[in-house]
């Protein structure tokens, strides 16, 4: 049986993804993109990983979608956005997507994976932390370096240049 929540999330995610591509208004398009990212967060919740789901909302919906929205608002649409109405391209795109979907569907059907049922509780974030400190420590150190670099860069960019002269 198909889960109702899964079905609803799929409809929201795919529908808003199509809307994000197809809507003429850029603002509505970016709102639809937020819907897509929120739907992905819902999938993470269904997959018993609330930690990733909440970070998906906090980072993708809360920050990256805001960045896109802000950029779209500051840009004059007419100057950069030339509509290319070419039905051939559209149909070619839809055909390509269908081929891709059928291929992925064939792989999934062929794998014999019908349903996965586990009784395991949601992943505890402490386990994620333990894994990061033991097995995945190089990845952690790499992330720490990148984050430290970006924070330092932000601090340098935010420093006022005119402090001495003014």
């Amino acid at each position: 049986m198909v889960d109702a929540a899964f079905l609803a999330l799929s409809v929201i995610t795919i529908g808003s993804a199509i809307a994000a591509l197809e809507l003429r208004s850029l603002i509505y398009g970016s709102i639809a993109l937020m819907g897509t990212l929120g739907g992905v967060a819902g999938f993470f919740l269904l997959l018993d990983s609330p930690f990733v789901a909440l970070f998906q909302i906090a980072v993708y919906v809360g920050s990256i979608a805001v960045l896109i929205l802000f950029t779209v608002m500051l840009v004059k649409r007419e100057l950069i956005f030339k509509k290319i109405e070419d039905p051939k391209r559209k149909w070619a795109g839809i055909g390509l997507m269908l081929i891709f979907m059928v291929a992925i569907g064939a792989i999934i059907l062929d794998s014999g994976l019908k349903s996965v049922t586990t009784d395991e509780p949601p992943v505890d974030f402490r386990e994620i932390g333990d894994d990061f400190l033991t097995y995945y420590w190089p990845a952690l150190i790499l992330m720490a370096l990148i984050l430290a670099g970006s924070v330092t860069g932000a601090l340098v960019l935010a420093r006022r240049e005119d402090e001495i002269s003014g």
């Binding site: 609330p50 919906v61 929205l69």
Partner: peptide, 21 residues
């Protein structure tokens, strides 16, 4: 919820979107 503080950060992230919209 177990991740209350992260959920708080996720909710706080919605205010700028709504404001700017």
């Amino acid at each position: 919820i177990d991740l209350g503080l992260i959920a708080v950060f996720a909710v706080i992230g919605f205010f700028p979107i709504i404001t700017v919209l």
